[in-house]
């Protein structure tokens, strides 16, 4: 029995040695393989993740993997290049007839068979899936839109990417002018800023660092959740009651489960100023949660809801 055990131990050590050396070898190979790059003329740009992307020529077949890039692509006039979109893209209406390529989990097979020469993605899609497609010859650009400035920056970037520089710049300029027109009024001296509770799902709201938080500030309001700790926090009734919002806005989208009546009937909410004065309003969720050109529509609508007197 002892000799048998010794023999087994020997086998164990041999296998372990083989394993360790093979893993080291393959890891090394991977690291080296990942750093090679070619040198060609064409489009050279840096995306929102700070990655440098080099394209030989202007792409002719583009797959978009999130609603924001889809809406930007169409807005700059590059919609005819889009051959595949994610499940959630539904604007503009032409998108509905385009091949679907999955959502958070991409259908890599469908994407490969579409033979795109570029993927435009957002920071919602796990990057490893995109890298795998990149390894198979399909480059990708990530738009990680985190503020209104990013929106116009990304629109210009998509313009360069698709050869629609003029349309993109014109669009970005007009959006910037519209944003300016809104903030000029809302940030003017003497404007009283109402306390706002903006709800995208019962008790879930926008915290610091989120787009919704920025929009409320630019529209001339004070977000009652601006001091919470997470980007998309769930708030307690106590917080809302203590902060006593003057305006409550709930968004209407595919997640909507609530109504103004339901909000006013929540236990203890009757005393909140917004409820008592009947200031429970609603907005189209897509105007707040999609960071393409429509976000400026959202800003204008939000500003008009907060300051009806300024935007009549």
């Amino acid at each position: 029995m002892d000799r048998m055990l010794a023999k087994k131990e020997f086998t164990v050590w041999i296998t372990l040695t083989v394993v360790v050396s093979s893993v080291i070898a393959f890891t090394g190979g991977y690291m080296v393989g990942a750093t090679t790059s070619g040198e060609d003329e064409g489009i050279l740009l840096v995306d929102d993740y700070g990655r440098t992307i080099k394209l030989d020529k202007i792409p002719e077949r583009i797959v978009s993997t999130a609603p924001t890039p889809t809406e930007i692509l169409f807005a700059v006039g590059a919609g005819d290049l889009v051959v595949g979109v994610d499940e959630y893209s539904d604007y503009p209406a032409e998108v509905l007839n385009i091949t679907k390529v999955g959502s958070y989990t991409l259908s890599t097979e469908v994407i490969i068979s579409l033979q795109p020469d570029l993927i435009v993605s957002s920071d919602l899609v796990p990057i490893a899936q995109l890298e795998l497609l990149e390894d198979n010859g399909i480059p990708f650009v990530v738009l990680a839109t985190r503020s209104l400035d990013d929106v116009t920056k990304d629109i210009r970037l998509v313009g360069i990417l698709t050869g629609h520089v003029e349309e993109a710049n014109a669009l970005a300029d007009s959006l910037e002018a519209r944003i300016e027109a809104v903030t000029e009024k809302t940030q003017a001296e003497g404007v009283v800023k109402p306390r706002v509770y903006l709800e995208y799902y019962p008790y879930w709201t926008y915290g610091p660092g989120s787009f919704g938080n920025d929009l409320i500030a630019l529209a001339g309001g004070i977000n009652i959740a601006e001091n919470t700790t997470s980007e998309y926090p769930m708030v307690s009734s106590e917080l809302v009651i203590a902060q006593d919002p003057e305006i409550i806005i709930y968004t209407i989208g595919y997640m909507t489960t609530t109504t103004a009546e339901e909000i006013s009937l929540r236990p203890g909410w009757g005393e909140i100023t917004a409820v008592a004065e009947g200031n429970i309003l609603s907005m189209d969720d897509n105007l707040i949660s999609r960071y393409g050109p429509r976000i400026v529509d959202g800003l204008e609508e939000l500003a008009a809801l907060l300051h009806p007197d300024l935007f009549s």
Binding site: V19, S22, F26, Y30, L106, T108, P126, A128, D135
Partner: peptide
């Protein structure tokens, strides 16, 4: 959803 040959090789022997 992220199958890679490098993953396969690194897992195989262990």
């Amino acid at each position: 959803a992220e199958p890679r040959w490098s993953y396969v090789w690194m897992m195989l022997f262990p």
